[in-house]
Design a protein around this nucleic acid. Sequence first.
DNA 1: GTCAGAACTGTCCGATCGGTCAGCTAAGGT
DNA 2: ACCTTAGCTGACCGATCGGACAGTTCTGAC
Lengths: 182, 182
Amino acid sequence: MTRSATTMRADILESAARLFATVGFRGTSLQDIASDVGCSKASLLYHFTNKDAILTELLSPVGRELAELEERLAGLDGDEAAHAAVAGLVESSLRFRREITILMQDLDAMTARPELPDINAVIERLVDALTGRSGDPRARVWGWMALLGVALTGAGDLAVPEETLRAELTRGALRTLGRSID
Amino acid sequence: MTRSATTMRADILESAARLFATVGFRGTSLQDIASDVGCSKASLLYHFTNKDAILTELLSPVGRELAELEERLAGLDGDEAAHAAVAGLVESSLRFRREITILMQDLDAMTARPELPDINAVIERLVDALTGRSGDPRARVWGWMALLGVALTGAGDLAVPEETLRAELTRGALRTLGRSID
DNA sequence: GTCAGAACTGTCCGATCGGTCAGCTAAGGT
DNA sequence: ACCTTAGCTGACCGATCGGACAGTTCTGAC
């Protein structure tokens, strides 16, 4: 069977996203994806230049969203920026549960990926926005992104209303970050 | 240089723990550990039967602690058991920050590890204690263990008192798990 | 029917993984 | 001085990884 290029790319991205989110990027081989899609390993590399390209395209919507957040933060400063940064992270985590889960699965490897310029660029901005306390703020931001990701993953099958979850996560994040903005 | 067996084992465990916690179990090769310790890869396998044995020994204290929790839960039932289970998980997460981080790094792979009988056994019990809602309770328990782990990791360099953190995490966990026990 | 190009695959490659093994070296008992 | 043994290592193995590439099959335009 021969699928159209767009259909095939969509199928590959869907399978890859599911596998990446459950067993991680490193834990997923090209053969695993190919078996799930129902094609050969070589076919994947016909539609995508390499394995990293699949990941990059999966995360590009998150990158765009975070880039917009970056722009919004540019006009703010101090507590206002910190509040907007955390609120934006919570919002993005809710919108991209699976993508954030993928990011979280190989957190350390992701931060060192040059092919994710959007995401890493906005992290720098968030570090600026949330800075001013002891310790490594970068680790704190990533820690909180991961925290939100796992929280949403673990709470995915709960009956807790999304509104409540959003409010609690925002309040908890702000409190733990040591800022009192209400 | 020739170190004593006990010293060598301790050095290996220390290096492995640091590497596992930062780049994950899968992300750490035997050569990585050997380089960090300052010995050959073969030397690692002289002191430990295989790579899994290093991980198992690293996590054995957590296993023992969770086994004790399991015994404590055996005498309880219903809401009492659920409360004790969550409180115990929070307590263990605080005591074994790094080990929980390691568990969290390859969460999916860890749950399927037969060489971690202590840990997986108590998970079964925790599932029983926390059961009674829709969805997969096992995923929920692991999700919360991971949540706690990342929270503690990300919050490691914060000025928030450990007491406050402990109280907030316990309350948040109980709330999200849908139990109202106060 | 023909044919160009898109879609796809079998097969091979180098690198790296966890693990094995025969043998080397240094230390301690006698 | 001799020898046993614990500690250690270089070299090697099979498996698996991501990726390359030549060649095959399908499909739509004419």
